[in-house]
Nucleic acid binder design. Sequence first.
DNA 1: TTGAAAGCGCTAACAA
DNA 2: TTGTTAGCGCTTTCAA
Lengths: 335, 335
Amino acid sequence: MEKQTITIYDVAREAAVSMATVSRVVNGNPNVKPATRKKVLEVIDRLDYRPNAVARGLASKKTTTVGVIIPDVTNVYFSSLARGIDDVASMYKYNIILANSDGNPQKEAQVLNTLLAKQVDGIIFMGNNLTDELRAQFTRSKTPIVLAGSVDAKNEVESVHVDYVAAVEEAVADLINHGNKRVAFITGPMSDPINGEYRLKGYKNVLAKHGIEYDPDLVFETDYSYRAGEVLWPALASAKATAAFVGDDELACGVLNGAKDAGVKVPAEFEIITSNNSKLTEIVRPQLSSITQPLYDIGAVSMRFLTKMMNKEDMSSDEKTIELPYGYIKRASTK
Amino acid sequence: MEKQTITIYDVAREAAVSMATVSRVVNGNPNVKPATRKKVLEVIDRLDYRPNAVARGLASKKTTTVGVIIPDVTNVYFSSLARGIDDVASMYKYNIILANSDGNPQKEAQVLNTLLAKQVDGIIFMGNNLTDELRAQFTRSKTPIVLAGSVDAKNEVESVHVDYVAAVEEAVADLINHGNKRVAFITGPMSDPINGEYRLKGYKNVLAKHGIEYDPDLVFETDYSYRAGEVLWPALASAKATAAFVGDDELACGVLNGAKDAGVKVPAEFEIITSNNSKLTEIVRPQLSSITQPLYDIGAVSMRFLTKMMNKEDMSSDEKTIELPYGYIKRASTK
DNA sequence: TTGAAAGCGCTAACAA
DNA sequence: TTGTTAGCGCTTTCAA
């Protein structure tokens, strides 16, 4: 395959300089006489020369590409993060190799391997559950890694996300202040520490603070899907829930529509607060009140964080985990 | 950065063979005595050797990575395609470098350049409008390229998508058969040939077939956003439209909610058909009738197509453009 | 079946 | 300021 024909050597010959000099002007090395630089640039332009990044990568041991492991691009939560990542990546002249893992530990491990084989300069990992094995692989490899919008329960790997505990506390407190004594807690798999650890803790915290006893019957562990929420109403009704905190927007839309279809008035008879403030929250009626997370920024900050690690910048002032501020937006699904 | 420490040379020494032999077993070359292979494999395992893909790429002139240019990962239409692409890519041992372009010709050209510099084996392009300049760059480069869910108005670049003309014809015919004489045509930028050329043609075709005169006042060119649709109702009302074909789901949700908020009964007083059958169509009420496009498959087929081109497989039986079947699903937004 | 050796296109000392 | 010269880690003839 005769893809790349002209090399740095051709340019050197044409410009009557050494390849070292060509390399210098290509890399913006100041130690080149302006006249020489001009001449070389002219030849580069004429020959339409384009440096071979693979050769460069081999010689310099830097590929200017980072690996991004994502459960599913199709999920807005993650694609928002990914967009933030890509934007600051290209700002710093990096490209991203994106790989879907479906949150499957086996795929994650396998993908990590090929990413390392491709000599990526760094890795951003998104995933619901960081297994011990993967964490071990991460620490073993010398490649810098940052978790975006994901947490490491053992807090060994750097990560950026919001304070899930506090966010849930605020949301549920709001619900309780509206007079709800029985607030349901609806999330995806508890194996994800964001749910099983942080959010649940926040939920229990507020309950305790308001002297309400924790009732496991009000905790609903499902998967992150519209359908799962839609069929939940009967269970919610029999648990006598009058409000719900929901950990995912699609799920929340399902809960909302399921309730509405059953003739329940939202928010008069049932209040809902969701978690990601995606477009969905504004498209359904009533629009959903939601915790807001700066997803794009989480991705962006993760990537920025990674560049620091890759450049071995001074990071003494940085914490291992960066917490970005969450917010709350009241819409029509709460009183 | 001491990322990769052990090389093929270390393995060779440890196994007391030449690096050529190690290379052979790594690459599954059959010309290796089973005993030798076993010995080498054992050393590879013990040393935890992982072939350096960059060096391999330089020597073999193959990187097993393909570039994917996408307007915005955050958009479900494109992320669905991307998911299909990545799945079959990994099936064929390729990785994808994903780059967002925002459909901006300048970014597209720039991204294409860095992709080529990185020696990708192929490129998949998604974009609303293939400029002449970009098409020229595509044809000039020797790298195989296919357009996914996008079209080349001049039909010079290979692509896979559905038959937009026929899809719109079917949708609008349905609306007309319900007695609608004034069907609005609402899409994104007409600069996208999918809208300005194919869909519009389909729209005009059915109108003509049913003896209805084409009225430019019924054509609404907006951008692909919920908000754009939401504010459209007054204009639709004054154009006396009683139904609408919409080219994008978010846009359609906006139109729907805008109409509902104005007290219009859907579908009794106004019918809507949208185009992408994304989750949104099932989340809004009434649920939206929609043309269905096999987005995931379009991505998957594009990638498969690309692998054929990259392997220089015999493609004499393949057309330059592959059309996948579209469908139609009736929901509650039409009579 | 195996090995020797010449690159792949570039960076990075080191000299000059 | 510029050039020479080793590599970077692997694939791939060509011989043996």
